[in-house]
Design a protein around this nucleic acid. Structure first.
Lengths: 190, 190
DNA sequence: GTCTATAGAGTGATAGAC
DNA sequence: GTCTATCACTCTATAGAC
């Protein structure tokens, strides 16, 4: 067989970019073809289920990244006073990197807003439930009283920061919100 | 001429529902026809520019609502200690009503996230710029030091709360975030 | 009769599935 | 590449308020 032009990981990363850019409905197969360099035949070879399966694969990829880089470190935080603070600083750093300082939106958040949500409701809900739970566990271990409420505020704040920085076309707004949220978390830990 | 089946305001309201539900790309003319009861001929009679003009009209309608119900009251707040507090409480009440307690998303925020943003960038940016400016002016009049930063946090927080409540399929999350943000504003005013 | 809101068949282009 | 369905949109025609 001919060599694959793209590894599966590269392919999924590019699919993610297309879905982030155009949304699920707006991501036409021709846009996907242009972004990946793969013809329709190749795409259907990799994803017999079509666009639905492509989006599912991208969501699973995003989920795996957050599980490894964000949720697990938060959950594995010890009880030493400094640990939760460091874990939360690491989370904010990871988030800033992942979202390219506000230049990249959250695919899961975008899917949550439109009718796409119904198709991928389970994956969308899971992403947020697990993020909030992992962050709340870390905060609780740091002695925060209303850990669950604060975790919800921080996760919502990050999503809002992405909307705002895209709307204002100002990635600096994302950084400002991230720092404000991190400060809010650190104040609660102190 | 035949009587209009729908007033222009009703028509625009229904168009808004369709765009909120499906996004700009996902809002097909057949979905619009189904939601409005109007055939293509009627729709193109009202909006010769097609979907673009429909979305522009909806955004203008949203803008007018927020200008009248949210921005103007915030800007017109006096300098009495109680005024900014009341104006901000009124803003949160208006926001809760408009977004149906979290059951309705923000069309402008949704447009900000996908590629639609480029088409309507000016209207999208304007909505957020004016909201933040009006809220910051009110906070500043209430003696808040970093009024602009807090205003940004609150507006971003509202957008994030909408994403979260849709993602979790839990409108109660929207109410919780709204109360938290209002408390944050009131603490800064005190 | 004029004008406007209606309806919907028909256009070419393009969608996603295979 | 081929397929059918559907896309946004055009055009012609009619109904009815003035």
């Amino acid at each position: 067989m001919p060599a694959a032009l793209l590894s599966r990981d590269d392919l999924i990363a590019r699919l993610g970019d297309v879905f982030r850019e155009h949304g699920f409905e707006g991501a036409s197969l021709s846009a996907i073809t242009a972004a990946t360099g793969l013809g329709k035949g190749s795409l259907y070879n990799h994803f017999p289920g079509g666009k639905d399966e492509m989006a599912t694969a991208v969501l699973a990829h995003v989920d795996a990244w957050f599980e490894h880089e964000v949720y697990a470190p938060l959950r594995d935080t010890g009880r030493d006073a400094e640990d939760p603070r460091q874990a939360i600083a690491a989370m904010f750093a990871a988030v800033d990197t992942y979202f390219r300082g506000g230049g990249r939106i959250c695919l899961v958040g975008a899917f949550a807003l439109d009718a796409t949500r119904d198709r991928f409701a389970a994956a969308v809900q899971d992403y947020f439930v697990r993020w909030i739970a992992a962050l709340a566990a870390c905060l609780r271990r740091g002695g925060v009283k209303h850990a669950r409420a604060l975790a919800e505020t921080i996760v919502a704040g990050i999503q809002g920061a992405l909307v705002l920085s895209r709307a204002l076309n100002d990635t600096a707004a994302f950084g400002r919100q991230l720092r404000q949220l991190q400060h809010q978390a650190e104040s609660a830990l102190a």
